[in-house]
Each structure stands twice: as structure tokens, then as C-alpha cells.
Design a protein around this nucleic acid. Structure first.
Lengths: 344, 344
DNA sequence: TGTTAGCACTCATCGCCGTCGAGTGCTAAC
DNA sequence: GTTAGCACTCGACGGCGATGAGTGCTAACA
């Protein structure tokens, strides 16, 4: 026994229905609501076959069937292949970015909110990351009599930094001079390279050692781990709308996962990196306690090839087609924003 | 009939017990667990009086009593007056700030997490705000050939800024010169004043008009509203630990409130501003749907007198003494950090 | 050989009801 | 003023039968 056209149509109907209602779907429902021209008895036989094939599960003997992870997988794969992805929300997305957004974090936050609002699921957005950005300019700005701000501009166009920093009574012009020489020495290096280079420089430049020391300390910290710093999450509470999370215990689990941002970043960041989309269904996520969640992710990229990730977390019976289409749009939108002129 | 010493002691015992157990407390419990030297019958009479006085409520005839908002109010007031606030977590708090924190936002975030971890409730931290900070330095840093970054350092010691910005092919030295003259013109002004001043300057300086235009646009946006931008929240999901939020409906309400950061900021920011503490109990919060929440807030201040707020949101039967003591410590800690040397 | 009608069977859900026990209010005695 | 005793209330819990959705199987039909 194997999959034929009719089985496929029935499976499709079952999945569609289950996504809508979250209730185990029975043979009668299929034969009536989705006029197949078949009686419930026939559907029943087919459903029995589908169960044997591993596409359907039965919560208990006298309940309807629910799609298994394998079924969703098939569903999603054919969905993507057939390109059944609507574009009707296209302008809606760019509207949401109407106001000017300066900081990258603002963009990320906004994106998470928009995705969540459009999909009605929880959304996560990771900032671009990838090959280490190169330093373009280093500049010191006086903050108070004994502190200066270090601004490091990298070639990702996005400015990552500002650390504050002691030094004994230096006027603005001197600081500028120091900035110039720092820029000359460090331009084109990655942050890590700069970090390795600094000890030697500290030995060389005797004056202003304290500034360099501070810069060194800052870079060291920056290098280690804090990479996955700003994860934007939108619509955390939306998950509670779905009956599968009516259990308070489950809800708490989910929410505390959403709160530990670094774990979340790990989960969302697609290890592959090549693919436009990743859809992980239920157990495929590999996260204990998320067996009835699915995670859909897409990537966007910046001018210099860094990649960021956007993702949606929802119940396994998620509206995949809608979610994928929205992530698709949003990915393009973000890519445009980050590769276009920075002024936008 | 009025409040006497014994009634007070009984009320205290009831509140203590209810805070611990979240279960309506009966007369027998009081007479046995908190040896008052009184039989349950006597307690019963007193409880009846306390109910008449409005300090106790009865969910239904044959259940125990639960403290009313009025009772908590009394409890908190005597608590604060008597200074029953322990200091045992003092060093624990400063430990949590061991790693150097550069950005104000990092401090705020960390503070929210620490408060939440120590209290076991949801914590909210607002950044300092108050009188408009004055500009100390304006500096332009080249980002790419046709964009520059504006860094505005204010006297709050905290640097709030960076906007990116077009201009046609200017080299670093010219940018520095422009920065100097901008600093000269704008030093000591508030952001709003600067905003008003700019149109005139735009007329005067013919070259580099585009930079000024961009700066103007940025300041205008910055002035309007986006003040309450970065609210830090910690331990959102902690609220679900408490039986009063076992209802999914309630939980969702609460969580979506936590997600709309601007509303949250409104709620938390103490309008008085003078007081060290604010404790709003149940209906006192004035927020529909939060009748069984209490909000405790405290303030901290920065070097130049700006004030920030830290707060805890929990069930009305919150451990007020613990919460107040922790907020107290944390307030001092933050005040120290923001008024001390910036290097910390 | 595939489809369908019919039927017995399963099982979760719901409302009903009696029991249990915590807690109260009242009264009378100390 | 305090306490013991007692009747009473009422939510929580568990057992029970009815209900109904849904299945699997069998036999008849095209």
C-alpha cells in the first residue's frame, strides 16, 4: 500500500481542517465539508491506511485523527514546491516601516512586532551576524572631564558599540588626534584582530595608555559571546491564544524559554545558512518541551553579506503557507533596508 | 467597635498566612499555627469584627477569610513605618553587577533581571528621565562615503544617540571641524532648544546644509514621545507561578500588558516623584484587569538629578517587606552606579 | 475490486448527586 | 470576655449514567 492521489487529497483536507479548528477530525467531517464525492466509510478506510503509513495519529480509539509531524512535513514540502504563497500583504509590510528607523535595534524590534501581528504567532528576529565586520573608523568623543566615548564604525554599515572610558584630562583636539591614529592603525581589521593587535600598541604608545587599555578590555568582552545580544521578540503572549497552550504549565515553560534570549537565539539561528527557509516541525526542533511547536525561519542579509534570521514560533498546526509568505516578504524588506542607503 | 492591639495581631497573622499559602485562612489555623493563646472561637469573633471593619473578605460563607486591599494597605504602612526591612541581600545585589556594564540599557536590563530573580516576581525598570538633558558635545563620525553618524553627548553622562545621515563626500577632518562648531553653538542647550535653534542655523551656514537638515529631523523625532522607549522587564513568566494567575485568560491579559511597553511605562512611572516608595494595592493601581495585582515602585537618580523608576508587579498577597527591601537596595545601587564614575 | 450502508463498540465529555470536610455563626456556660 | 458545642453552609471530589462523535468490521452492491 502506498500514497496515491486520493489519499493525498484527503490528507490535505484533514490538515487544513485541523489547522483551522485544532479538533481531531473525523471521517464524516471530511466527506461532508470537503465534498470529495466519497462516503464517510470510504474516507474511513483511507484514513486507516494513512494512519498505518504514519501520516495520522489517533488520540484515542473513538476520536478523530490528527496529522502527525510527518504529515505536516509532507504538507509543507508540497506547499513550498508548488509555490502556493500569496503576496497580498506585500505593501502592508512596507507600510509598517513608514516612520524612519535609525538604530538597527529599532528595525529589529519593529520587524518582530510586524511579523507577529501579521501571522498571529510569536516572532523572533536576530540581528545580522556572520563574518566579523571590519573596522572603518575609531573615534573618541569626550563625555566628561575624565571619560570618553569610543565609537567604532564597522563596514557592516551598522555601528556597533560605545563604551565609556577613563583618561586623565585630555582636551577634545587631542582626543581627535588619538582617534586619527587609532583609525589608521586599525582600519580594515576585524574586531578580533584589533583585539590581538592592541597589546603591542599599548607597549608602543606610552602616552594615553589608559585609553588603549580600556579599549582593549572592551573589545575582549565584545568578542566573547555577547554576540547574540539583541534578540527581538514580538507577540510572546500570542501563543497563549491557541488551545494547545491552555495548560498553564506548558505556557510557563514556553514563556521562560522566550525570556532566556541566548537560548532562543541558538534555537532560531539556522545552522545551515544556505537555505532561504527552514521549517522545523514538532520533534524536528529538537527542543525538549517543544514537541508541539513548529519553527519557521528565513534569512535576510546586509550590504556586506552578513546574515540575519527572522522566525516564527507557533503550534505544529500553524498556517504554514501564510507564515512562509509573510517571512518571505519580510526577509526581502529587511534585505532591502539593510543593503539600501543607510539613511532610510 | 474599633481596632485594638489584638485585632491587629490577628490581622497580621492572617495576612502572613495568606501571603504564604494563597488559601483563605480559617480561625483554627490562626489559633493553632500562630499561638495567640486564644481559641478558634474567639478568633472567629475577632475575624467577624475585622470583616465588618473592612479588613477581611469572605469568598463564600463556609470558607476562611482573605485580606482586603485595605488590610494590605495597613500592613504595608506599618511595615514601612516600623522599618522592618532586612538588609541581608545587600552584597548579593552588588555581586550581580560584577561584570562591567557599558551601555545604560545593559544596566537597566540587568537590574530588571536581578530584581526579578531576588523577589520572584515580575520586575520593571525605567531609564532615568526628568529635566531635559543638556547637550555637551556633538560629534560627527564618518560611516561611509555618503553617511555620517551623529553622536550627541548629554550631561546626564549617559549618551543617547546615533543617527545616520547623508552628506556629499566630506573627509574626516572637515567633519571634525563641523562637529566643533556645532558643539560650540549647541553646548548647554537642551535637545528641545537645539531643535528650535536649528532652522536659524540652517539659514546661516550655507555649506553642509544637508547635515544640519538631517540633524534637525532626528532631533524632532527624538523630542516627540519616544522618551519612554527602553523599558526593561524581567521575569514576565514568573507571574504564572502564582495560583491567582492559573487562569489562562488572566495570564494572557497580564502578558499582553507586559508587551505594550509604553503603557507599562505609564503605569510604573510614579507621578509623585517625591516619594521613595509607592505601593499600589489591587484597585489602587487603577488598571482594569489588575485588581488582584500590586505594584511597588522605588526611584533612583543620576548625577544630574534625573530620576528613574524600578518596580515590581506581583499578586496582592506579595511579600511586601522583602520586595520593598530589595527595591530599596537596588535603588541605592543604581543611584551609586549612575552618579559615581562612569567607568564602573 | 472498490464503494457504501449498517451496526456494534469505544470512549471522552457533561451534568447529577451524594459524601466529606473545612469553616462559620450562634448560643449557652464558665 | 472567653470558650465549648452544635447546626449549618458550601466548595471540592468522585462515582455514575446518558450522550454523541467516531471508529472498525462485515456484508451487500455496482
Amino acid at each position: 500500500m502506498d500514497m496515491d492521489e486520493r489519499k493525498l487529497r484527503i490528507l490535505q483536507a484533514i490538515i487544513d481542517d485541523y489547522i483551522l479548528t485544532a479538533v481531531p477530525v473525523g471521517s464524516r467531517t471530511i466527506s461532508k465539508k470537503y465534498d470529495m464525492g466519497l462516503s464517510s466509510a470510504t474516507i474511513r478506510n483511507e484514513m486507516s491506511d494513512l494512519e498505518e503509513l504514519g501520516y495520522l495519529d489517533q488520540p484515542h480509539v473513538s476520536a478523530g485523527r490528527i496529522p502527525s509531524a510527518k504529515a505536516y512535513r509532507l504538507y509543507v514540502d508540497t506547499l513550498i514546491r508548488s509555490g502556493r504563497i500569496t503576496d497580498d500583504t506585500a505593501e502592508s509590510i512596507s507600510e509598517h516601516f513608514a516612520g524612519r528607523l535609525h538604530q538597527m535595534e529599532d528595525v529589529i524590534d519593529r520587524a518582530a512586532r510586524v511579523i507577529s501581528d501579521l501571522t498571529e504567532y510569536t516572532a523572533v528576529v536576530l540581528p545580522p551576524k556572520g563574518k566579523q565586520p571590519c573596522i572603518r573608523t575609531v573615534q573618541l568623543v569626550p563625555v566628561s572631564d575624565d571619560a570618553a566615548l569610543v565609537v567604532i564604525v564597522t563596514d557592516s554599515g551598522v555601528v556597533r558599540d560605545n563604551v565609556v572610558h577613563v583618561s586623565s584630562q585630555i582636551d577634545a583636539d587631542t582626543l581627535y588626534a588619538i582617534s586619527r591614529s587609532l583609525t589608521q592603525e586599525l582600519r580594515g581589521r576585524t574586531l578580533q584582530e584589533a583585539c590581538e593587535l592592541l597589546p603591542e600598541m599599548i607597549g608602543r604608545m606610552k602616552e594615553n595608555q589608559d585609553i588603549l587599555q580600556g579599549l582593549y578590555g572592551y573589545l575582549q568582552e565584545r568578542g566573547n559571546g555577547t554576540q547574540a545580544s539583541h534578540v527581538a521578540v514580538g507577540g510572546t503572549s500570542k501563543m497563549l491564544r491557541y488551545p494547545e497552550y491552555n495548560d498553564v504549565e506548558k505556557a510557563r515553560n514556553f514563556l521562560s524559554l522566550m525570556e532566556t534570549r541566548d537560548k532562543l537565539a541558538d534555537i532560531i539561528s539556522t545552522n545551515g545558512g544556505e537555505m532561504a527557509f527552514t521549517v522545523r516541525i514538532g520533534p524536528e526542533t529538537g527542543i525538549p518541551g517543544m514537541e508541539d511547536c513548529s519553527i519557521v525561519t528565513a534569512t535576510y542579509s546586509t550590504r556586506n553579506g552578513q546574515q540575519g534570521t527572522i522566525g516564527v514560533i507557533g503550534p505544529t498546526r500553524m498556517q504554514y503557507s501564510k507564515v512562509i509568505s509573510i517571512l518571505n516578504m519580510m526577509g526581502h524588506q529587511l534585505t532591502d533596508m539593510f543593503s539600501g542607503e543607510e539613511q532610510k
